[in-house]
């Protein structure tokens, strides 16, 4: 089946860019990496069997490349979410900015855990699909999910208590 590159770009650009952005936390770097992913895809066009295969390929590529890029650029925060200090003053207290707080916390997760959470909640993949995507046992995927959500929820509660909500 002939794959139309322009259609693939159109249909998947938000997914690729968004995943890159969540890892790299910088729009310029994310855009650059996302373009590179598509270029690499273009060079492998002959091996792609269907639009669904294209999406799978792109998702896998952007996740792996983003994780590598983060490690290379040492973009990880100095501390993980678990050892983050108690919030003395909040950037954005109040329910109105809840979603941006959750995003901020997800972005502070360690890379593998972040990848699992993003693939689950941004891309709607199930644990088996995530395990294939990240070359990770299903049990590890489930463990990452459970631990990350508990951590996020706990940290959110701490922020709310500090805010007096």
């Amino acid at each position: 089946m002939a794959i139309d590159f322009a259609s693939v770009v159109n249909d998947n650009q938000a997914m690729v860019f968004s995943l890159a952005l969540r890892f790299l936390r910088n729009r310029e770097i994310a855009e650059e990496l996302a373009q590179d992913v598509f270029l690499q895809f273009y060079q492998n066009l002959g091996r792609i069997e269907s639009p669904a295969h294209a999406t799978w390929w792109l998702r896998r590529s952007v996740c792996h490349r983003s994780i590598d890029e983060v490690r290379k650029r040492k973009l990880r925060p100095a501390v993980g979410l678990e050892s983050a200090p108690e919030p003395a003053s909040l950037e954005t207290p109040g329910d109105l900015f809840l979603l941006s707080r959750i995003r901020r916390m997800v972005q502070a997760l360690p890379e593998k855990a972040k990848a699992v959470v993003l693939l689950r909640y941004q891309e709607d993949l199930d644990p088996t699909e995530i395990s294939e995507m990240l070359d990770m046992p299903v049990s590890t995927v489930k463990s990452h999910l459970h631990r990350s959500l508990t951590l996020l929820r706990g940290h959110l509660r701490k922020e709310e208590m500090a805010c007096g909500v």
Partner: peptide, 22 residues
């Protein structure tokens, strides 16, 4: 909470000229 996480992680849009550049 999971629903909130899903809402928070909705896909971000790339710049309008992203596809053209690619």
């Amino acid at each position: 909470f999971e629903k909130a996480v899903k809402r928070a992680l909705r896909q971000e849009l790339p710049p309008p000229d992203f596809a053209a550049k690619v």
